[in-house]
Design a protein around this nucleic acid. Sequence first.
DNA 1: GTCTATATCCTGATAGAC
DNA 2: GTCTATCAGGATATAGAC
Lengths: 217, 217
Amino acid sequence: MAPFDRGSGEEVSKESLILEAAMDEFIAEGWGGARMQSIADRAGINKPLLHYYFRSKEKLYRETVYRVMEYFFGVVMGNVQGKDNFPDFLRSFIDTVVDETTSHPRIPLFLMQELSRGGEAIRSILSDVLGKQNPPVTEVMRDNILRAMERGEIRQVNPIHFIMNLIGSCLYYAMAEPMIMEIGKQIGMIGLFDKKAFIEERKEAIFTLLYHGVANE
Amino acid sequence: MAPFDRGSGEEVSKESLILEAAMDEFIAEGWGGARMQSIADRAGINKPLLHYYFRSKEKLYRETVYRVMEYFFGVVMGNVQGKDNFPDFLRSFIDTVVDETTSHPRIPLFLMQELSRGGEAIRSILSDVLGKQNPPVTEVMRDNILRAMERGEIRQVNPIHFIMNLIGSCLYYAMAEPMIMEIGKQIGMIGLFDKKAFIEERKEAIFTLLYHGVANE
DNA sequence: GTCTATATCCTGATAGAC
DNA sequence: GTCTATCAGGATATAGAC
């Protein structure tokens, strides 16, 4: 199930039906693994109709990347804006990104896979997506950090590096879970395993580390 | 140029010649994009010979994943072991991983792409690779953290979470550079741009944030 | 707009001569 | 061990009837 869930029972155009199917397939299989036939099957139509609505696989793919990024940045924005105090901001960003990537782990992997195709597409699409938000979520994040520095609440840091550390920490588990599990087993740090509890632990660990890392105690 | 550089002028078997070519191709193109023909071309041989030495694409691929992980974990191990004091350990891990992924950014993307194929292969291969190190680099890292906690040098933390935050922070820039550049431009935090200086800045930022994050000041 | 049938291309893999 | 030639399958995309 994709995270772009329409209300069920709704009247949906065939176009968006196809796009939903394309998202499911591309996210699950990546660019190289995705098959037009599978997308048609998922959408309950046949292949030529796919090419009737969207000229090519590339077009469908680009549209998919766009929608995934629009969705993801939209969710983050929705949960982060209006948090004018730094710990609240930090905590809601972490909660949002960790929860979202945990329930849909293929999304960050999908975007990473797109990055490994070269990153030109993602760059221009990101620019479009941020351009449609006002203010863009990236500015909201930067301003939260700058404000906290002005208030003396946190140390002087370069926001871009802090943001990278934050995102990296939040994404890493969902993307690398099979490796983490192996490492955790290997060093005896993960026992029999309540995933839900682990995720809560994870969010707390990220918050504590990063907050202590910047706070003027 | 792959990071698995043989000394030039050496006598090399055709087998390793093929493997080098396969690594270059798989890292550049991923599983789906890699072509046996391209690998043959890179190795200066023809396709049937590829199947003569390695039965299938899958076999070649698996061997590639193995070598990449062996290389990467080996480099980290080499730079991290023997650092018995926590800040030194932390700094050399960060320096190693950031430098290594910056000069070979396709490597983490390649491994992520493999993770998005499902992660079964990577899990068993990781187990093999760590099993050949004694002690495994993961244990060295865990022990450094545990020792620092015992000494009271750092707060009580769950090593697995600290390690994830550390790795995530170190890898993120190299993997997501095109996105970072766009975001950096967008929020006016990256001007005209000395990459070398930025990388040094980045290493310092990670160290400072994480060290302050755990240190008992 | 929707389908069946098909074109065209390209892939991994092999047969078989040398 | 190394090559030429080729197979069988599967991919995107389209032609053309309805």
